[in-house]
Simulated scan of single mutants.
Amino acid sequence: MGMPRQFFALVMMAGLAACAAGGALEAPPAPSQAAVAEYAIGVDDIVQVTVWRNPELGITVPVRPDGRISVPLVGDVMAAGLTPNQVAADIEEKLTAFVRDPQVAVILTDLRSHEYLSRVRVTGAVRQPISLPYRQGMTVLDAVLAAGGVNEFAAPDRSSLYRRVGDDTSSYAVRLDRIINRGELETNFAVAPGDIITVPERGF
């Protein structure tokens, strides 16, 4: 009697696992950190510079029209046309005259110079359709909240995120109602520059 019950339990568990797998939603590829690292800084981009163990040397500044930023101790440093890693290496080299073994990180906190490519757009049944600057770490929920949230006509669980990779554009299902009202974050994807989030209206 024990064996049939065990067999039945195993079959049930396998069936439940298959159902769960079938209900899984495809996730978009993670935003490429390499792409951000290779991004050529432009005029008006906001750059954050940090120096390990020397917080007083940290700055967050826009790139000036002449393409430079001013860094404590070393003065003006060219940033426009260079990648964050290249700017960090230049600052490290200049800081060696003042700081032992400087370790510098340069992060883009607001990409303003490449207006279209560096923005995230939220359209459809939201209170205020919006095009907002991309920030590292931004998620679908961040973008939708910046648009004022969904309106009374929305079908939030049928939302989609559209991402262009190369010559192809892919769409990914976003369960926005579950994110907002249930705290289910499986589809609260990290967004990438150029993403479009669309919230459809429900049928009447």
Rank of each mutant, 00 (worst) to 15 (best):
M1P: 14
R5Q: 14
V11F: 11
M12T: 15
M13A: 15
A14C: 12
A14V: 06
A14T: 12
G15H: 08
L16Y: 11
A17G: 13
A17C: 13
C19F: 05
A20T: 14
A20S: 11
A24W: 04
A24C: 10
L25P: 03
P31S: 14
S32I: 10
A40E: 04
A40R: 06
G42T: 00
G42A: 01
V43F: 07
V47I: 15
Q48L: 10
V49T: 09
T50Q: 14
T50L: 07
V51Q: 04
R53Y: 11
N54E: 05
N54A: 10
P55S: 14
E56C: 11
G58Q: 11
I59Q: 10
V63W: 03
P65V: 12
P65Q: 12
D66T: 03
D66K: 09
I69K: 02
S70C: 01
V77I: 15
M78W: 09
G81L: 04
T83P: 02
P84C: 11
P84H: 14
P84Q: 14
N85S: 13
Q86Y: 04
Q86E: 14
Q86K: 08
Q86N: 14
A88E: 01
A89H: 03
D90T: 13
D90A: 13
D90M: 07
D90G: 10
E92K: 08
K94S: 05
K94E: 08
L95D: 00
V99I: 15
R100Q: 14
D101C: 06
Q103N: 15
V104G: 02
A105W: 03
I107T: 12
T109E: 10
D110S: 14
D110R: 03
D110M: 07
R112E: 07
R112N: 06
R112K: 10
S118D: 02
V122A: 00
G124L: 00
G124R: 05
V126H: 00
V126C: 04
V126D: 00
S131N: 09
R135D: 03
T139L: 00
D142T: 04
A143C: 04
A147F: 02
G149Y: 06
N151F: 00
N151C: 03
F153Y: 03
A154M: 01
A155E: 01
R158C: 01
S159P: 02
R175V: 02
R178F: 07
R178Q: 15
I179D: 04
N181S: 12
G183R: 12
G183E: 15
E186L: 09
N188E: 13
A190W: 05
V191Q: 08
G194Y: 11
G194C: 07
D195K: 08
D195Y: 02
I196Q: 01
E201C: 04
F204L: 12
